[in-house]
């Protein structure tokens, strides 16, 4: 664990909590792309299946449970509890144009052709484009509430910090994961705008 990864995880956690609280307190999900939130829930589900198979640390396990819990809670709030405030007309990004190519790429380019590894690779590729429906929705509505921009900033910051974490780990541990790094660069670039 290094400072970049810890601050990255905390920034990610902050983004997830900011969004959840915003929807809960305002009792509205106006301006929020439900499709992006579904994609994030899918990212966490496919990435954290190893919760069932391996224990790395209390921090690792608890953060994974919190991420999965909050992402499904957010999806629930958007599509169930505050469904009336969901702006489906502007949330019109065709997510199948993301999921299908990402799924294909995960089968073609991965570290190991095993189910868990392919699902992990799928989640890495999907996470790098999961925000597109949200960015698309903001471009259509032409506006983003202040809290949504804070959410996007924290979310963008998290993967940018992970890039520094990977530089750190390569330099000090000789460790690097090209798939995570390339997807992380793509993800960070998408947030820059």
């Amino acid at each position: 664990m290094n400072v970049f990864r810890l601050t990255g995880d905390l920034s990610h956690l902050a983004a997830i909590i900011i969004l959840l609280l915003k929807i809960w307190k305002t009792r509205s999900c106006a301006g929020i792309s439900g499709k992006s939130q579904i994609l994030f829930a899918l990212v966490f589900t496919t990435r954290y299946l190893d919760l069932l198979t391996s224990f790395i640390s209390l921090y690792n396990t608890s953060m994974k449970v919190i991420y999965i819990g909050c992402s499904y809670a957010t999806v629930y709030l958007i599509y169930m509890k505050f469904r009336a405030t969901y702006d489906g007309n502007h949330d019109s990004f065709r997510v199948e144009f993301l999921v299908v190519p990402v799924g294909g790429l995960a089968v073609l380019i991965n570290h190991d052709f095993s189910p868990l590894e392919i699902l992990w690779t799928f989640s890495i590729y999907l996470e790098s484009v999961a925000i597109l429906p949200q960015l698309f929705m903001i471009s259509k509505t032409g506006e983003a509430e202040t809290i949504t921009t804070h959410y996007l900033f924290c979310l963008g910051l998290y993967r940018a910090l992970y890039l520094f974490n990977w530089i750190w780990r390569y330099y000090f541990e000789g460790f690097f994961d090209m798939i995570a790094i390339v997807a992380g660069v793509v993800q960070t670039v998408l947030y820059c705008d």
């Binding site: 990864r5 995880d9 990610h12 190893d50 391996s54 790395i56 690792n60 953060m63 994974k64 991420y67 991965n110 570290h111 190991d112 590894e117 992990w120 690779t121 992970y162 974490n165 990977w166 780990r169 460790f175 994961d177 798939i179 995570a180």
Partner: peptide
């Protein structure tokens, strides 16, 4: 950590 991927990361 397991083969390849950075599985100790979130």
């Amino acid at each position: 950590c397991p083969l390849g991927g950075s599985k100790d990361e979130l």
